[in-house]
Design a protein around this nucleic acid. Structure first.
Lengths: 345, 345
DNA sequence: ACTTGGTATCGAAACGTTTTGATACTACAC
DNA sequence: GTGTAGTATCAAAACGTTTCGATACCAAGT
């Protein structure tokens, strides 16, 4: 447990001042090439590395990025946000940052609970995934920390955001069903207050309208409490209980689509023969269920990556330019809309 | 952006010294109840919170735990280790630690690359998931940091470890197949150098032996390069290409089992009618494929949780007692061994 | 000759805590 | 009344960096 070298040791051995060594290490200010080289040489010889805490104290930076996720999304270990999170981990390492994860409840009260990394001044910027209290966002603003929103958007765009192209995704999904000849297309949705979900819903209605297809309200389930597998099952139940007889279903996300599939199978309905289904998100599971699910692929890791790039930009550049990125989506056609073995028919 | 209060402000307002305030905050040393109360009152009034960097510098602690994962496991976003990681995140928050994630390559050379959080003295303890270079482990030891291994074990148990009860899991799986009347039971395995996998293999052989079932070498695939879905497909191909005709297969993990299922289905074989399959791990996907996979459930989040508890113990207690925990497993019987609709037969 | 501005280096202060050692009081046993 | 052990508080040092301002040199522009 030998004493590890400090910047002081480096300075002494190089015959220079602390300040000069610091300048070299941080690649800042004026240093002659020869001096720089000799410092670096000593650094190598001693295998010196600056300590994060000391650096943090002096420079008021932490080298960390905070990732905030709503409690429900985290505890369910939601495959969707989990992927985004892993994407940030990946990209963060490239930029020499670490990600600190925390969760927050639905409503935020600064007198009650504040993420610890904010109190301890232990992050340089914040990534928020999904929907959280607006109070929380303005609280963080008041700390002067840069924020990047992922899969969430506020009325007035004051923050950089990384968004899914939900409109295009919804349109692609419904157009796909229309192209297959479907006209009685149902929508299975949940909490429409979440911007992503309401956009998908809007795209659904718009696409049908454009195609001149009559909109039937009994075909729309928009108030299911949870957009989960269980929610999908219960929404499907309600849909058919209402007497609707769609030939195709657009589910607001894959979790609901999978729940829906399960319900249809339990009723003995064949997919896609009796009812075709399209989901949204392309979570891992979707390619593995039977039938494999047609869906709109969202590049989740990519979203995390972009979010980190944005927040790092804001941290380093100090300039607060707001960038909204719409990450493109892709329709993945699988067996839940187009039968693999056409022999079925 | 008003100046946030420091411990100095608290001391001044409370009419006490820095040291006393520090003692109160850290709940240490002798402080009279009245003094403690008056300090806490001021802390509340100013809503003071100590800064992580300053605290870290003075106390040589970071409040972080390092999580090390091999590169391949991370980049594949392996659902197995990902779950363990999420388990640590969950538990870490309870103990007021943050998790810093990093990955390492297969071979470790301290002159080449060392995880940044080690160089920067930015972690108080380390959790290592899966198999990594032993050189890395001894390097970390030389830094005096406590280590907890998860799903990995070294010959001489010098570190606390959180392990799967692979022996019992493998035994349960094979006994299940025997109880169903199977005698020609194949094993699909990969890199047997990983302790977890070799234990499962050993349990397989032992259980068959105990049951007096002849071991047929052509029934054993133990050298598949990757224990992934693709590896499972290719292992299954090789198994049947060799002319083996098992009625049941025990795959070393769910990923391989799923790959195997895929291959069997492409050959037109019915599961479990023609061949029954058991996996290991119970990853999310397993309950959703067709047929739903019988498997040995591993409590992945739980393993992460325990790992954090162990490492926090070592960090706070300073005592280096080695604890090896075998997390129990559970056989989950699903359709890949027992037909749901018995009408099939 | 006198500014000006860029280059190079340094000393000292600052960052906000924890920790160490000293001091002083009280209570109790002898 | 002296010694001992526990209780309570404090002043100062230490932790390892970055940053600020000062100094000094040199070359070029007037």
């Amino acid at each position: 447990m030998k004493h590890r070298p400090t910047i002081r040791d480096v300075a002494r051995k190089a015959g220079l001042s602390l300040s000069t060594v610091s300048l070299v290490i941080n690649n800042r200010g004026y240093v002659s090439p020869e001096t720089r080289e000799s410092v670096l040489k000593v650094v190598r010889e001693l295998s010196y590395h600056p300590t994060r805490s000391a650096r943090g104290l002096a420079s008021k930076t932490s080298g960390n990025i905070g990732f905030i996720l709503s409690e429900e999304h985290f505890s369910q270990a939601e495959p969707f946000y989990t992927r985004i999170f892993l994407g940030t981990e990946f990209e963060a390492r490239i930029h020499n940052f670490y990600i600190l994860l925390t969760t927050v409840g639905d409503q935020f009260d600064p007198d009650q609970y504040v993420p610890r990394f904010l109190l301890e001044r232990n992050v340089d910027g914040i990534i928020i995934a999904g929907k959280v209290s607006e109070k929380l966002i303005s609280y963080i603003d008041s700390l002067g920390l840069p924020i990047v929103l992922v899969d969430y958007e506020m009325k007035r765009a004051l923050h950089s955001a990384v968004l899914i192209d939900n409109w295009r995704g919804g349109t692609l999904a419904v157009e796909h069903l229309l192209a297959l000849g479907h006209r009685r297309i149902a929508f299975l949705g949940g909490d429409i207050r979440h911007p992503s979900l309401s956009e998908r819903y809007a795209a659904y209605k718009n696409t049908l309208n454009q195609a001149g297809v009559h909109l039937d309200e009994t075909f729309e389930i928009t108030e299911e409490k949870a957009t989960s597998v269980a929610g999908g099952t219960s929404a499907a139940e309600r849909l058919f209980a209402s007497g609707a007889n769609p030939t195709a279903i657009f589910a607001v996300n894959d979790a609901m689509a999978i729940g829906c599939v399960r319900h249809l199978k339990s009723r003995g309905m064949r997919i896609p023969h009796d009812v075709a289904i399209v989901g949204f998100d392309d979570i891992d599971m979707s390619a593995h269920i039977e039938p494999r699910l047609t869906t709109v692929r969202v590049f989740k890791e990519e979203m995390g990556k972009i979010a980190v790039q944005r927040v790092v930009d804001s941290i380093t550049a100090k300039t607060n330019i707001v960038v909204t990125t719409h990450v493109p989506v892709e329709l993945i056609v699988r067996e839940s809309t187009v039968s693999a073995a056409h022999a079925d028919d």
